[in-house]
Design a protein around this nucleic acid. Structure first.
Lengths: 216, 216
DNA sequence: GGGAGCATGTAACGGGTTACATGATTGG
DNA sequence: CCAATCATGTAACCCGTTACATGCTCCC
């Protein structure tokens, strides 16, 4: 048995692993398929890839030897290219899954940024933005449920299903937090309505040295 | 009154607005201060900026005219530079807050990616990763609470406080979802333990045409 | 004296998005 | 026949990260 020492994994980015992951369920898929599949699973918690990224990731994976491809569409110019994971790819997946340090979850919440800067905005508009976000979360929740139903009872999809259930809960929580904040917002509006007449700008000024004296 | 038509806002990225937002509370701050402040507020829901980014953002803001700076440290070579928002900056902030389309929240959840690919990994390791994530969420929750306490009772910080409370709830929910998934994981392990002996690889193979027949 | 924190930057890299371009197939 | 969908790609751009570099000041 030659070369049994644990060779270094090529340091791929998580998105590359996610792409390989899509192939690791055993299907032979086109870039187009991949994108669609990502759109009803990975999208909820990780990634909504663009086509261009998918295609370049796939080419990269093939170059490394983690995937192979073949062109099907008869003898045409622009043939459909189907990708399949290789044994080397499967092994690399396993090693990555078990050995690679887990990247922390990243959240970039544009809506909360707006709320955080609430003093600069019109209260009514703030409220509107929140309501929209609430509705969006609810929509995502429903979609996640639908996709989870599609995945249920498929024996190979136990883990994706588990994550889809997590996602459902995630959007449910997101919705509920938006509702809670809506209530906070109204409470704040009432309080500020009582204590000031109309001053729109700079209610924040002065608050000087708390920054400096705040314990890290 | 010259030039009253609504001039176009320079299309800054959200992170630039976030930087300007940090200044919009009225303080005169150094890049270093800015970073620290971001670290105990924006970090929870949006952004943990690097110094290099902070400094380049600040230079950009000054160039546009949304901030001014002055060097304090006597006549030294490497003086400390303090930035302050300008009236133009304040007005731009307000317009952005009220008029700019809100970027959707982005989530990139490395832990869930691992779980989604659970079939490729060792169950015990999977569990470990989840537990770690759970603990991290709890840590963040506690930090958010602490920072919220620091911000409470400051009249100008009502909105940041509101978001900090949202963040507290966020990490609480994150923790609880991790716990729930831990339970799911154990249930799944028991079920799979009953139905198969030891096959590690490819329990997922075959699951063939469901993909193609799945309704988008 | 030395380490921790203060303070500011430059340069390289690359990942990911957007815009653009092309054309086939399918169904109403 | 025309629109939608299938299907694949290139090129430019730039945001953000990482690594590197420098030197101060305060405090033990």
């Amino acid at each position: 048995m030659p070369n049994e020492e644990p060779t270094d994994l090529p340091s791929l980015r998580p998105t590359s692993w996610a792409t390989l992951g899509l192939l690791s369920f055993g299907e032979e898929l086109s870039g187009y398929d991949l994108k669609k599949w990502a759109d009803w699973s990975l999208r909820f918690f990780y990634w909504a890839p663009s086509y261009s990224q998918i295609y370049s990731e796939l080419r990269k994976l093939e170059e490394i030897g983690y995937a192979t491809s073949r062109v099907v569409n008869k003898d045409d110019v622009r043939g459909k290219r189907l990708y399949r994971i290789t044994p080397a790819g499967e092994e690399a997946m396993s090693r990555w899954a078990n050995e690679a340090p887990v990247e922390p979850a990243v959240l970039k919440h544009g809506v909360m940024l707006r709320m955080w800067l609430g003093h600069a905005g019109d209260p009514a508009h703030l409220r509107e933005v929140l309501v929209e976000h609430r509705d969006h979360a609810e929509k995502m929740r429903v979609r996640a449920i639908a996709d989870a139903e599609g995945a249920a009872h498929e024996p190979g999809w136990a883990f994706p299903l588990m994550v889809l259930n997590w996602s459902t809960k995630y959007y449910e929580d997101e919705r509920d937090r938006a509702d809670a904040m809506l209530a906070d917002l109204d409470k704040l509006a009432r309080k500020q309505g009582r204590s000031r007449s109309s001053r729109r700008t700079s209610s924040a000024r002065r608050t000087s040295d708390e920054l400096r004296s705040h314990s890290s």
